[in-house]
């Protein structure tokens, strides 16, 4: 199928371009005012001369300061944009947004989180500049950003996403969940009494996958006993990693997340499963975080 699409794309790109296209475009651009003639030419000149634009916006200090001035009981733990970098270079685009967690009393935790976020984007940026050096005529797009999934009295869950597009696209998501009161980072092993959760959650996810496949013919997961053909050619989903990506949503439910291509075909994108609390209730250390 991929080859067929490539073939079709080749044919599509072979659509003959009539020589009148240039004059048509210019005519259309200049119907309004003469001024735009000048601007269009000027712009091409500049675009040719400047092959690299770097816009770096640092929104955090002002924003962070104005936010901390609001008097609230206790400290306000918040997430702000620390850095927003956009680079455009021909067919190469990068838009990287780095989050920063502020006002945690546990400065070690705060620093290590923020350093990690900076490093993640630094790595993406290095990868990006390397791609440009390797092949000037290629296409590459990279975008990263963050989303606060939950921020209540007790918990803060931050997700960071990265989308890379070259020939195909790949999205990854990473989450950090913090207990704001005890000021610690939560992990799956912390939440559960023992390792039984791995099996309990895995079986629950498989069941949900099968159910979704049955209800919606557009959905496919690499799971057995669901009538999916060609399962032997891929790694079918067996069980979650002990430190599988997760967050706790606003409803106090555990959400398990998988990056694209890992448990389903690429078109399914990043997939998540909300685990009903009754399924894991016996394995949980307590019902403080997950209810």
């Amino acid at each position: 199928m991929d080859n067929k699409i490539k073939e079709l794309k080749k044919q599509y790109k072979n659509t003959p371009i009539p020589k009148e296209l240039d004059s048509t475009v210019h005519k259309a651009l200049h119907t309004r005012k003469k001024r735009s003639t000048f601007r269009a030419k000027w712009f091409i000149g500049v675009a040719a001369a400047l092959c690299l634009f770097v816009i770096s916006v640092n929104t955090s200090p002002a924003l962070a300061q104005s936010l901390t001035k609001i008097p609230v009981l206790g400290s306000v733990i918040q997430v702000v944009t620390f850095q927003d970098i956009q680079v455009e270079n021909g067919n190469y685009h990068a838009h990287l947004k780095t989050p920063q967690v502020n006002n945690l009393d546990n400065k070690d935790l705060e620093n290590s989180l923020n350093q990690k976020y900076v490093n993640e984007n630094q790595k993406l940026y290095d990868e990006f500049t390397q791609k440009i050096e390797q092949d000037e005529d290629g296409h590459f797009l990279i975008e990263s950003g963050y989303e606060v999934k939950t921020n209540n009295d007790l918990l803060l869950s931050i997700g960071r996403y990265t989308e890379e597009i070259q020939a195909s696209s790949a999205t990854t998501l990473k989450y950090d969940t913090i207990d704001k009161q005890r000021q610690i980072m939560l992990t799956l092993p912390i939440l559960f009494k023992n390792n039984d959760y791995i099996n309990t959650i895995s079986e629950e996810i498989k069941e949900q996958m099968r159910q979704q496949i049955k209800e919606d013919p557009d959905k496919i997961y690499w799971v057995d006993n669901a009538g999916i053909e060609d399962l032997d050619v891929v790694d079918k989903f067996e069980k979650i990693d002990p430190n599988q990506n997760f967050y706790i949503n606003e409803d106090h439910k555990l959400v398990i997340s998988f990056n694209d291509y890992t448990v389903a075909p690429g078109y399914m994108g990043v997939v998540e499963f909300v685990i009903p609390t009754e399924v894991i209730a016996d394995d949980l250390v307590g019902n403080q975080y997950i209810k």
């Binding site: 659509t15 296209l21 712009f43």
Partner: peptide
């Protein structure tokens, strides 16, 4: 935004033409 638009049109005019052509099938 207008400058952006104009440079986009100039840069990608062939893409836009091909897209239009894919619908109407004549130049």
């Amino acid at each position: 935004s207008k400058d952006k638009l104009i440079s986009l049109i100039l840069e990608k005019k062939e893409d836009f033409y091909r897209l239009a052509y894919s619908y109407v099938k004549n130049s």
